[in-house]
Structures are given as C-alpha cells and as structure tokens.
Amino acid sequence: MSDNKDVVRQFIISNFYVANPADLKDDTSLLDSGMVDSTGVLEVIAFLESEFGISVADNEIVPDNLDALERIVAFVERKGGKRVAK
C-alpha cells in the first residue's frame, strides 16, 4: 500500500519537477497547487495505466479520483491495480 504511494509520489515529484518534496503532502490538491495542468492530467493517467495495469474510463476522470496523492492511491487500489513488472 505505502509502496504504491511512494511510487506515485516519486512520479509526481519527478514528472512535475517539485523542488521541495515537503510541498507535496498526501492531500495537496494537484490542480489547485498548479503542479498538474490540463496536459498534466493526461500524463498522470498514462502513468497510472502503464504502472498499475489499469484502464481509466472517461467518467472516472474526476477530482475525487485524481486530485491528490491519497485520492490517486485509493483510486488505484479500488481498481485493483497492481504494479506491472518491468
């Protein structure tokens, strides 16, 4: 579980070049903080699909599922996502 969170956290820190990791708390809004912009949402979805082997449906693209670290992790786990061996 916390593994998943670390993986997603690392992705956000590097893909959205967060200089100070302390800025990214579990419940920080990725949209309101500006870390993720409209194209950034695509990048998050693409990452989740390839990293956890899930498929994100249109009606799942909502802030409740994607707008904070803890929401993303909960969403992935609800979807039964497992890290894909690479």
Binding site: I13, S14, N15, F16, Y17, V18, A19, N20, G34, D37, S38, T39, G40, E43
Partner: peptide, 26 residues
C-alpha cells in the same frame, strides 16, 4: 533554481523530443 528539480524537468523534456508534446507548464 533547485538543480534536482530542473534536472527532472530537463530529463522529461529531453525524453519527449520526438513526439513534441509539451504541456504549457513544461
């Protein structure tokens, strides 16, 4: 600027040079 963060940004952009899709933020 924080070198680690710039390095993450730069790595991301260099890896995308072929498809050319950069967000407004990038």
């Amino acid at each position: 600027f924080e070198p680690r963060a710039v390095s993450a940004l730069w790595k991301k952009c260099k890896s995308r040079k072929d498809d050319g899709q950069f967000s407004n933020a990038d």
